[in-house]
Write a protein that binds this DNA or RNA. Structure first.
Length: 281
DNA sequence: AATTTGTCCAACCGCCTTTGT
DNA sequence: AACAAAGGCGGTTGGACAAAT
């Protein structure tokens, strides 16, 4: 409805722009004493020449006592990337999982740091999957092969009690190849290869299908069940191939964790299966 | 030293949703 | 059910500052 929300700028004489220390003091003092109550009424009763919306923003993004300041930690960075892969640009929802951080702060951090980081890694910052345009194909290839190398190293040095995370070097290479194939054809490679049902996949794994690797050359697809399950059970708009077996989450730092299956091992309790399941439900 | 370019982030804008009448 | 007001959210902007030329 046109004009339903009165804009701050429409209200004559109300101050705009940066807040002065005096204004901050008035706002903080008022809210500490009375709570914010109705934001639209607050400026008048508190004695501020601002619109309510501006006061709410100032309080929520800057003056609130529980706001955490300073650099984002590696864990926070990782969490933002993973949450963004699941939720997209739902900054408020993402902020809900990072105590002390505001949606504005996270949004700014994403736009100035994380987005560029993903692009540098050859990943689409919206979908979190490798970019498939021609300009990025070679970058992708290099990236994927590098990933394969580090992934296999990581797999072999991982905690031996976690068998699900152990991959042979050839598995990692094979995974990289599949990943690349996925990029090129822009479809789920298992679908393209006719491996999207159990019996075909079984024959693929047994090496009875023509021209493809035998069982011991395949990555342990079981590792991706969690993500596959999550992708399949949500309507997240940013998951172009919802039944893809390839993970679409990336680590905050390439040198640390390459795929989310490994990330689960690197991250704290918040990244457990139950956590993610609850999150998207 | 002066100018240009790039980066960061607080704050604004406009749209959508929720709530109250 | 219809409407209006308020709250909430995501996209964008513009000014301050730093780095590069």
């Amino acid at each position: 409805m046109l004009g339903r929300t009165q804009r701050c700028s429409d209200e004559s004489g109300l101050k705009k722009g940066p807040w002065s220390p005096e204004e901050d003091e008035i706002l903080v003092e008022y809210i500490e004493r009375h709570g914010h109550g109705s934001w639209s009424a607050l400026p008048k009763v508190a004695g501020l020449n601002r619109c309510g919306k501006s006061c709410r923003l100032r309080w929520n993004n800057y003056l609130r006592p529980d706001i955490k300041r300073g650099k984002f930690s590696q864990q926070e960075e990782q969490l933002i990337i993973n949450l963004h892969a699941l939720l997209g640009n739902k900054w408020a929802a993402i902020a809900g999982h990072l105590p002390g951080r505001t949606d504005n702060e996270i949004k700014n951090f994403w736009n100035t740091h994380l987005k560029k980081k993903l692009i540098q890694m050859g990943l689409d910052p919206i979908t979190h999957i490798p970019r498939s345009d021609h300009q990025n194909l070679l970058t992708n290839l290099q990236q994927i092969l590098a990933n394969a190398s580090i992934f296999s190293t990581l797999s072999n040095t991982c905690d031996n009690t976690n068998n699900a995370l152990r991959l042979l070097p050839s598995d990692a290479t094979q995974l990289a190849k599949l990943h690349l194939l996925h990029n090129i054809v822009q479809y789920n490679p298992f679908e393209v290869l006719g491996l999207n049902n159990d019996s075909n996949l079984q024959s693929f794994c047994n090496g009875t299908s023509i021209g493809f690797p035998s069982q011991n050359q395949l990555p342990n697809l079981h590792n991706f069940e969690t993500l596959q399950h999550l992708n399949g059970s949500t309507s997240v708009a940013h998951t172009p191939s919802s039944n893809s077996v390839l993970p679409n989450q990336v680590s905050a730092s390439p040198e640390e964790c390459y795929y989310s299956t490994v990330n689960f091992d690197c991250m704290d309790v918040e990244t457990s299966d139950v956590y993610w399941k609850d999150l998207i439900e």
